[in-house]
Amino acid sequence: MHSLFNCPKLSFRKLSLFSALIFLFSCQSEKPTREQLWIHIYHTINNEPLLINDMPYENALGQQYFVTDLKYYISNLTFIDNEEQTEYTLNESYHLVHVVGPEEYLIKLNDLPVGEFDQIRFSLGIDSLANKNIDQLGALDPANEMIWDWETGYKFLSFNGVYFPEQGDGKELIFHVGKDENYKELVFNLDPLEVPVLRVEEERYYDFYLSAHFDDLFKNPHTINFRTFSNTHDDSQLMDNFSHGVFTLDKIEIR
């Protein structure tokens, strides 16, 4: 480029040809209008959209509670081909989901593996390798307030709320769960969906629709009693519940 502009006698014709080439080239490599995969997550409690600081919800024991803040990590999205016995995990796949309203939460991804897949897997939390230190970037940036600084590691789930007992004042619910042993993998069979085998190709766009039923966090399989249990930082029961019935993969769309 430097020599191009230093040369005083470059003809107009050449310049216009050059710019036409640039134009053609840029048309060909035009970026797609959206990322290759959008993961839509709908958060619900008792089949109603999950609202922050709004609805009083009821757990399985009839105890009333509010949700004041809800964040969690989804990580290591993996495409599995059982026939070929191969799998492909996306690089740097750590996603912080912060539920702020009833709208769907969108995770946008590129660089999907090309191939045919019959299972999708992702994890709740941060794998032990990435959980070893917290000076990290992006979703794992400590500024996202999902770290423990006094005991190095990430909160996998941060659920803050208020429980209203029948008598007496409201009581804070602080469920911050992490630690390596609570890292959970979720595998979804594509069998029951309209696309039992997902063919991933370049230049095509995919939408995964997930539901997260947060009432299950407090009942399935372990019933959580807010009266006796309102504060934790490494609870395996909550993480069991979180990885058990909360998430369903409802639909995959291909364009």
Partner: peptide, 15 residues
């Protein structure tokens, strides 16, 4: 509790 110096920094910084 802090596994390395980099991770340790955040505690005094934000406490």
């Amino acid at each position: 509790g802090a596994r390395d110096l980099e991770s340790q920094v955040f505690s005094p910084l934000t406490h």
